[in-house]
Design a protein around this nucleic acid. Structure first.
Lengths: 116, 116
DNA sequence: CAGACACATCGACGGGCGTCGATGTCTGCT
DNA sequence: AGCAGACATCGACGCCCGTCGATGTGTCTG
């Protein structure tokens, strides 16, 4: 009966990511897991003023304005971008905290089970 | 006619992520953008030996063995996990390079347009 | 050889996602 | 007031993804 005491694996050390934490971080990663949104974030972050308006971002893609607006909304809802309407134009800026949170997630120490 | 020379935005600095790079990294993020897969990676990384067998990972979830196997395949195909079959059991191990690649992606310097 | 076990693969189903055209809302100009 | 431009929102469509039960493949034991 395949003796269970003679198991296949060393028991996991147990200090891993909790289900709650995983379900909390996954949406953030899902928001970033798209080529268009990745480029959007990169474009905004690499702009001189640290922000960019939709009209210019729209020109950088072969996509409809509606699609770009949708992607920006997703990134904004995920907490990756800040939204600031000035007059007719809307400026989006990157929230560094969100990105550094992701970066810290995949640090060796964090993976070993360190509490973020 | 809203003079275009009097544009809305400072032109993007241009040193942003390329389309190719975005399309190359997105699948890696997409593989990690799932609560189950996130916990799988964390479980494996936090195990004492740095690797874990499917039978044990399976017990940590309320999901079918087929589903866990599917997730492990996705992570393996994305280059996040290494696969090593020893006898009847299969051991998965985390590839640190893949995770540090993600971590470096969201470093302030990288976002500013530095070539990875 | 036959059986049991570990894991992968195969359809299949439901839901979510990316994209679009069309339309709505707000702002500024004349 | 009327119009034009910037951006958001609204269905709608096709496709991919997560999950499942069932089945296949390889490995060890008796």
């Amino acid at each position: 009966m395949t003796d269970p005491g003679f198991a296949c694996c060393t028991p996991l050390s147990g200090a891993s990511m909790s289900t709650e934490q995983a379900e909390q971080v996954a949406p953030l990663l899902k928001a970033l897991a798209d080529p268009v949104r990745l480029r959007l974030v990169s474009l905004i972050a690499s702009s001189q003023t640290g922000e960019a308006c939709v009209c210019d971002l729209n020109d950088a893609f072969d996509l409809t304005q509606a699609t770009i607006s949708h992607h920006l909304k997703v990134l904004h809802s995920a907490g990756v971008l800040d939204r600031d309407k000035r007059g007719v134009w809307v400026y989006y800026a990157v929230k560094p905290e969100a990105l550094s949170a992701v970066a810290n997630l995949f640090t060796p120490a964090a993976l070993a089970g360190a509490t973020a």
